[in-house]
């Protein structure tokens, strides 16, 4: 059975992508799915040949035939997303593709057409196949794009007979995050010892608890503020969620990434520790 692991974080910038990158060289038998579609960064550390580029048609958007439009404004009045202006121009960034405008138009001037909301890339990396995507900036519906990336990653896993999919999720708690953790077997939440980190962790734990998923927490840069690291641990204990790893702050992590090298295979002592290896063993067990 597929072991799908999602790495998420409520707060951005806690080191989710860096940790994901660090895990990759330690797992064989892997497909990588970068589901942070409005900030896809894993490919920067994992150069590889793009084997396929796919335009992702997320949903349909209205197009107005101005020859047929009589300017009556019924569509403008009916759109609940303020996506049609009074002078009947569509604002595509807020349109959710509900097709109410098409339905209400008395002159059949509006039709729904496929609309590309992002690009999906399949890559062949040194560590295994990867699927990632890039949302066209400003687009709606990143959740659907995430679902598509995961679908293609599963197909890839099936084809290449890989048993693990590692998912790099996005920050926040809305549709794109929900899409990234739906149906995974493990969710790893990367947090940091700060009041913001703790605040956002509470919200993301609340979200994760609505799924039947095995969730664990990593406190990244835990020694930057030990008092808050302690508060996070206390909170996790209360919520009965294990803090599986505490990663010390090390400038070499950032510098390694700046040199485009994966930190975990770039002579940083922490990644030779037993704790790190125990964590990896936890990830690969089914």
């Amino acid at each position: 059975m597929l072991n799908e692991i999602a790495i998420i974080s409520g707060k951005g910038g806690t080191g989710k992508t860096s940790i994901t990158a660090c895990i990759i060289p330690f797992i064989e038998d892997l497909v990588i799915a970068d589901c942070d579609v409005d900030a896809p960064d894993l490919n920067i550390l994992l150069p590889g040949r793009i084997t396929e580029t796919i335009d992702y048609v997320g949903f349909k958007r209205p197009i107005i035939d101005y020859d047929k439009c009589n300017g009556c404004g019924v569509c403008y009045q009916s759109c609940k997303f303020n996506s049609i202006s009074e002078d009947i121009v569509i604002n595509k960034s807020t349109c959710e593709g509900c097709k109410v405008c098409e339905y209400v138009c008395p002159t059949d001037a509006i039709t729904m057409h496929d609309y590309t909301i992002g690009k999906i890339f399949k890559r062949d990396t040194y560590y295994g196949p990867m699927v990632d995507a890039r949302l066209i900036p400003g687009e709606e519906s990143s959740g659907k794009l995430v679902a598509e990336v995961r679908k293609l990653a599963r197909l890839e896993a099936h084809k290449e007979e890989k048993s693990i999919i590692l998912i790099d999720g996005s920050p926040g708690i809305a549709c794109n995050v929900i899409s990234a953790i739906t149906g995974v077997s493990k969710a790893i939440i990367v947090t940091e010892p700060s009041v913001s980190g703790l605040h956002d962790l509470k919200r993301v734990i609340k979200l994760v608890k609505t799924f039947s998923v095995d969730a664990k927490v990593i406190i990244n840069k835990y020694d930057l503020e030990l008092n808050l690291a302690k508060q996070i641990k206390d909170y996790c204990e209360l919520e009965e969620i294990e803090v599986i790893l505490e990663v010390p702050f090390d400038k070499n992590m950032v510098l390694s990434i700046s040199d485009l090298k994966i930190p975990s295979i770039n002579n940083i002592p922490f990644f030779e520790s037993q704790k790190w290896h125990d964590f990896i063993s936890y990830l690969i067990q089914n």
């Binding site: 900030a39 960064d41 709606e140 990143s142 990434i257 485009l260």
Partner: peptide
């Protein structure tokens, strides 16, 4: 990010300040 909620937040601004980091990401 750059999705719909970011657009909703910045729409109509007179000026935007991007907070950036000098890393590849």
């Amino acid at each position: 990010g750059t999705s719909c909620s970011t657009v909703a937040a910045i729409e109509g601004s007179d000026y935007c300040i991007i907070a950036a980091e000098p890393t590849p990401f």
